[in-house]
Design a protein around this nucleic acid. Sequence first.
DNA 1: TCCAATT
Length: 373
Amino acid sequence: TVFQCVKSQVIAAMETQLSNGPTCNNTSNGPSTISNNCSSPVESGSIEDSKTNLIVNYLPQNMTQEELKSLFGSIGEIESCKLVRDKITGQSLGYGFVNYVDPKDAEKAINTLNGLRLQTKTIKVSYARPSSASIRDANLYVSGLPKTMTQKELEQLFSQYGRIITSRILVDQVTGVSRGVGFIRFDRRVEAEEAIKGLNCQKPPGATEPITVKFANNPSQKTSQALLSQLYQSPNRRYPGPLAQQAQRFRLDNLLNMAYGVKSRFSPMAIDGVTSLAGINIPGHAGTGWCIFVYNLAPDADESILWQMFGPFGAVTNVKVIRDFNTNKCKGFGFVTMTNYDEAAVAIASLNGYRLGDRVLQVSFKTNKTHKA
DNA sequence: TCCAATT
């Protein structure tokens, strides 16, 4: 069976060479990392590790850098903030960096925002390791795993080769049973290389078949290749003169739309319902989104509770707890701004009457009162 | 047989 393992890899390598067709994978789920895999300065032992710089993973695909800054800005003053995007398509790669002014705010952000549910994702907030080539391309793809192997057992098998940053076993979306494939991300590439040498084509303890261990594909590269491959097949690719450029741009937009549901700022499809309604006086609509009034918050309520309540319903661009100027305690209400009307409406319908502690919340679109009653 | 983890 070891021979079969090697043979299957040779065939797989051939197929990789041959297949450049478009792909569409929108089936990603949230993270399922066991244990605390945060890279803290203490764990990595380097005195030079930043205590203010955070990496944020598993962000929703449609989340913008402004929304990221708004979310983490509710904790404390931000020095800089960056959402990482694909260099070619501009698509969010689902992670970003937040650098605080005060290390205490970075710690607070980990404690309050790590594990926050946003739409279909559960975000991960941890200290960013110092950027270096040695930590890149340290992700392994593992296949042929026994269906009974757990994530913990997978980590135990690989942990002898280095520090594991994340691990995951893919499961059937319907049955929840293991698909026998997974991922292991090590702290360093050299650790991943050693794990391949030690575990590829080997049988895990108790297993009847050997596993395959190799470097994982880079999802962002795959995205770019699929899109460029389609662009290359367009009829006017041989004459990329001035006239063709607008069409190319348009074509790329349509490809992005079809493949990923993207509405880029160049596309006519970016003109959605909210944009076309701008200027019309509608309750709760503030031009930049839909403002929601939240009443009956506790005196100690803070912004994070609003993010936690409204974030799962869709794109939230801003939250604010109204506080007494002198006591700094919440005056019992706050506001949430959401980008999309539909998501705001569902959030209101779901959260109005919601019991938070011993209080029943009142949630509605903000009304436009010009004077006090 | 592939999840958006290093600016």
